[in-house]
Simulated assay, not measured.
Amino acid sequence: MDSATEAFVAHRNLLFTVAYEMLGSAADAEDVLQETWLRWADVDLHTVRDQRAYLVRMTTRQALSRLRTLRRRKESYVGPWLPEPLLTAPDVAEDVELADSVSMAMLLVLETLAPTERAVFVLREVFDIGYDEIAEAVDKNPVAVRQIAHRARAHVAARRPRGIVSQAEARGALEAFRTAIETGDPQRLLDMIAPDVVLLTDGGGMVQAASAPVVGADRVAHVLGRIDPAAVLRPAQVNGYPALTVRLRGKVDTVLAVRIDDGLITGLYAVRNPEKLSRVDREITVSR
């Protein structure tokens, strides 16, 4: 490989993770990487002091541009929008902060940030990029970036899960949840979900899904009780945490992730849009 290709390949997983955390879409993250590569191939490497920083800066700029386009697209999206689920490697769980940063619950919190706030938060809090480097990536001065980072940190802290759930706790909750659904035991299900639990189902207007959030234990239990008896529920590692895949006739019909607070399931995220399920049969590496 030539030097430019070698550098890009060496940092590709990092760049993908940066773009994915900013966009919540693996398809759009891959497009951003393609655009970054095309620009990187034209760079005179003799002028680049830090290749990793330079590539992160390029990726961030492309992702910011794509994020603004995505926001307009989401305004006309049918029903709730959820991030595209990723089948992640088990070793992601060893990096607790990385696993938390790509979790479905955290990505939904990041959706509530403005584009520049999201970029600053991701680069600073997840990847520990310096303020000067972030300033170059988002076209702000370092003082402004510090203020944005402080504001974004407070915003996320007020909305994120109350504590990072261990992999073992998440796995145990998912297994009990799976058993309750498969046995059709409504009381067992109600014992596991919070009274104010919220179920979001993303069908994108392509398959049947609730057009609005389903709120409350009884209503959510009723919806879950209608899962096709022929469905096969299997454990999977999705976005850094245990989740379930729901398969019908051998194909993934739904990816079901959960948010857990104080031992109860407070959020259920059911991705059903077929366009978002193409990557859950192959493992994707995220890194920082």
Rank of each mutant, 00 (worst) to 15 (best):
Met1Gly: 15
Asp2Ala: 10
Ser3Asn: 13
Ala7Glu: 12
Ala7Ile: 11
Val9Arg: 13
Val9Thr: 13
Ala10Arg: 15
Asn13Asp: 15
Asn13Thr: 14
Leu15His: 05
Thr17Asp: 02
Tyr20Cys: 05
Glu21Gly: 04
Gly24His: 05
Ser25Tyr: 01
Ser25Gln: 09
Ser25Asn: 09
Ala26Phe: 10
Ala29Met: 09
Glu30Ala: 14
Val32Leu: 08
Leu38Gly: 03
Val43Cys: 03
Leu45Tyr: 10
Gln51Pro: 01
Gln51Ala: 13
Ala53Val: 10
Val56Phe: 01
Thr60Ala: 09
Gln62His: 13
Leu64Lys: 08
Arg68Pro: 01
Leu70Tyr: 03
Lys74Ile: 12
Val78His: 06
Val78Arg: 11
Gly79Gln: 06
Gly79His: 04
Pro80Tyr: 05
Pro83Ile: 08
Glu84His: 03
Leu86Gly: 01
Ala89Ser: 11
Ala89Gln: 12
Asp91Met: 09
Val96Thr: 13
Val96Cys: 00
Ser103Cys: 07
Met104Cys: 07
Leu108Cys: 06
Leu108Lys: 12
Leu108Asp: 04
Ala114Trp: 05
Glu117Arg: 09
Leu123Ser: 03
Val126Leu: 08
Asp128His: 15
Gly130Cys: 07
Asp132Ile: 10
Ala135Leu: 02
Glu136Ile: 05
Ala137Pro: 03
Asp139Pro: 00
Asp139Ala: 15
Asp139His: 13
Asn141Pro: 00
Asn141Gln: 13
Pro142Trp: 06
Ala144Tyr: 04
Val145Asn: 04
Gln147Phe: 07
Arg153Ser: 14
Arg159Met: 14
Arg159Pro: 03
Pro161Tyr: 05
Gly163Asp: 08
Gly163Val: 11
Val165Pro: 02
Ser166Ala: 04
Ala168Gly: 04
Glu169Lys: 11
Leu174Cys: 06
Ala176Cys: 02
Arg178Glu: 03
Thr179Phe: 07
Glu182Phe: 03
Asp185Ala: 09
Pro186Arg: 11
Arg188Ser: 13
Asp191Arg: 15
Met192Asp: 01
Val198Gly: 03
Gly204Glu: 00
Gly204Ala: 04
Met206Phe: 10
Ala209Thr: 06
Ala212Ser: 08
Pro213Asp: 02
Val214Met: 00
Val215Tyr: 01
Val215Asn: 00
Ala217Lys: 11
Ala221Val: 15
Ile227Val: 11
Asp228Leu: 05
Ala230Lys: 08
Val232Leu: 09
Arg234Cys: 03
Gln237Trp: 07
Asn239Asp: 10
Tyr241Ile: 04
Tyr241Ser: 11
Pro242Thr: 07
Thr245Phe: 00
Arg247Gln: 09
Gly250Tyr: 00
Gly250Ile: 09
Asp253His: 14
Thr254Arg: 05
Leu256Phe: 07
Ala257Gln: 13
Ala257Ser: 15
Ile260Trp: 00
Leu264Gly: 02
Leu264His: 07
Gly267Trp: 06
Tyr269Lys: 09
Val271Ala: 06
Leu277Phe: 04
Leu277Ile: 11
Ser278Ala: 15
Ile284Asp: 02
Ile284Arg: 13
Thr285Gly: 00
